[in-house]
Design a protein around this nucleic acid. Structure first.
Lengths: 352, 352
DNA sequence: CTGAAAGCGCTTACAG
DNA sequence: CTGAAAGCGCTTACAG
């Protein structure tokens, strides 16, 4: 029973009006069946439903939603679709939104495109907009202002420090503080930062945490930590980490501990150290960030930071649902998620 | 100039009618400015545009699209949002669709949910539906039939063998054939399959390729290749590969070459072999699938199959655009993408 | 160069 | 229990 060419294919119905004519009832009645409204004769309901099943009729969402009520949709603007932790957040959020009856509209950011994306979301009359990742701060701030002005609920996940923005973010300063405390306790006093420049605005938070840990030991950031980020281009993170590590290996006296922006960079660096004949953690310690699955498969398994994605998305949903139900808050919400340092075998006592 | 509470905030305008009243013109005129239609007095255009900028008015997409013309949108149904090659396909496709003026509606499959997802796409009057990944064959076939019946363009990327479906897929049989030829040339005669059961329908193609390569050497699949898939649960792929490898290590005479379903499983297996004191490729050879970035960072770097994602999506776009412009084809299209085997250092001559 | 009116496909009071 | 009519916010002939 493949329809495409058969003579007795059911008619193609594209509106409730046509369907009503087809079954000999009024559009009103068809509409009521579609919306499961009470007070219809059982035989009528059945007649309409049979016709719907036969014709495969689907009501036009544009007409339905034009008539008002909420669209029950949320726009999600992603920094990219390639970074694993970002995607885990997206997947988790999307699933939970669907559980609450919300549809997700997903768009991917590109520099200078955020306005177009937001226009699209607004024209689709989404009830909330969520940003996941890190964006151009100026653009993001402008978009938040637009959303506030349109009285549309919003939430920023990850990007921290946007004025007026409701934000849920990992406490990256605390993560770095804890990781540095761990390394300092192992006797390390000189540090290599991989992918974390000392002065770039987007990594300020991490640097704060690192500086605080060092200060607690009477150490100075500039004197104890180095970063070679300017010297290497970041195209692919493994290669980037590998190249950064090689820069450090060229030093007369390389640091004994390395803190990477993410797991990929840490793994690339581990490989460079091992190629150079160094043993981990005997000669150098290396730490990652994100706790991706691959960490436990490395030799040695990688010490890293877990982003606590479940609690993050749980907090995000709480904020969203609360604002969706009770309206916008009078002042911006900031929810900070405590990170967890996962200690494995890539970190050990300092050699010297 | 933060608006939220200021007295002179511009009025909230939610329709062209209100905007028209606000500027003292007819809705028709406002609509024409919005659509950049010719023949308007420059001063009129300017007057309307100023009002739009001040009020942040966005036309309601539901009304615009209700009036007809295409929606210029494509529904994309993803197997999941966690598998890296799937996401690379999604990201590439989404970018190219946007370049052609199409908006993407992304939904994530769950068993039994495909009908709901398709209903949503149809109610949004998408012009095409793309499936990326592997699905329940029965469900997918039913959805394709619905789409055919509704005369909506469709395309399946990856999942191969659905009747009547337009399909773009990697030639997985050829990939396995080439990989096995490589291993056979190295002298391997006994093989361990990791994550590739000998009889599961979803991996038939790969088994075909493996069987063909073996047959060309006068070898029999059942006699030369083993799979322990039934014995292990697949929750996390690295761990799964690790567990599978341990099963083989318990054998009196384990195979000398291992072919994994994907890179993660191969990496987990490599780790298990190395933990057991085996050297790769001296004692055993291991191959992956997907050529993810991590492959080059392993010790040794992993021999694998490249999915050729750029050509795959290029072919997908060609099929989609052709059907969108010229209508549905009279018979289903099947485009097969030739894979590329990437030989690195995880494969070598058989020890015995 | 601009406007009044009809219509897209729904839902929702209001009648009967 | 069912239907005729108005209206959601746009666009598009058709007038002027």
């Amino acid at each position: 029973m493949s329809f495409p060419d058969s003579k007795n294919a059911p008619p193609r119905i594209t509106s409730t009006a046509e369907l009503a004519r087809h079954v000999g009832l009024a559009r009103t009645t068809v509409s009521r069946v579609l919306n499961r409204q009470p007070g219809l004769k059982p035989s009528t309901i059945e007649r309409v439903q049979k016709a719907i099943a036969e014709t495969g009729f689907t009501p036009n969402a544009f007409a339905t939603l034009l008539k008002g009520k909420g669209t029950s949709s949320v726009g999600i603007c992603m920094e990219n679709l390639l970074t694993p932790p970002l995607l885990r957040k997206l997947a988790t959020l999307q699933r939970q939104l669907r559980g609450q009856g919300y549809t997700s509209l997903i768009e991917v950011y590109a520099p200078g495109e955020s306005r177009t994306i937001l226009r699209h979301f607004l024209s689709m009359r989404v009830e909330a907009v969520v940003f996941i990742g890190h964006f151009d701060a100026g653009e993001l701030e402008a978009r938040i202002r637009e959303l506030l002005r349109h009285r549309v609920v919003h939430l920023v996940i990850d990007h921290h420090g946007i004025p007026h923005a409701n934000t849920v973010t990992l406490d990256r300063a605390q993560a770095m503080r804890k990781m540095m405390d761990h390394l300092l306790a192992l006797g390390h006093r000189s540090f290599g930062l991989l992918g974390i420049p000392l002065d770039h605005p987007s990594h300020l938070e991490r640097i704060h945490g690192i500086r605080a840990a060092l200060a607690a030991q009477g150490l100075d950031l500039q004197a104890s930590a180095r970063s070679f980020d300017a010297q290497c281009v970041r195209a692919q993170d493994f290669e980037f980490g590998h190249a950064l590590a090689r820069q450090f290996l060229a030093l007369k006296q390389p640091p004994t501990a390395y803190v990477a922006l993410n797991d990929e960079i840490a793994i690339g660096a581990m490989r460079a150290f091992q190629e150079d004949g160094l043993a981990i953690p005997r000669d150098v310690s290396v730490t990652g960030f994100n706790n991706q699955d691959i960490c436990t498969m490395m030799a040695p398994p990688l010490t890293t930071v877990d982003q606590q994605i479940e609690p993050t998305i749980k907090a995000a949903m709480q904020v969203l649902m609360s604002h969706l139900r009770n309206g916008l808050p009078s002042r911006p919400i900031l929810r900070t998620i405590p990170p967890e340092v996962i200690i494995r075998q890539s970190t050990g006592r300092a050699a010297r």
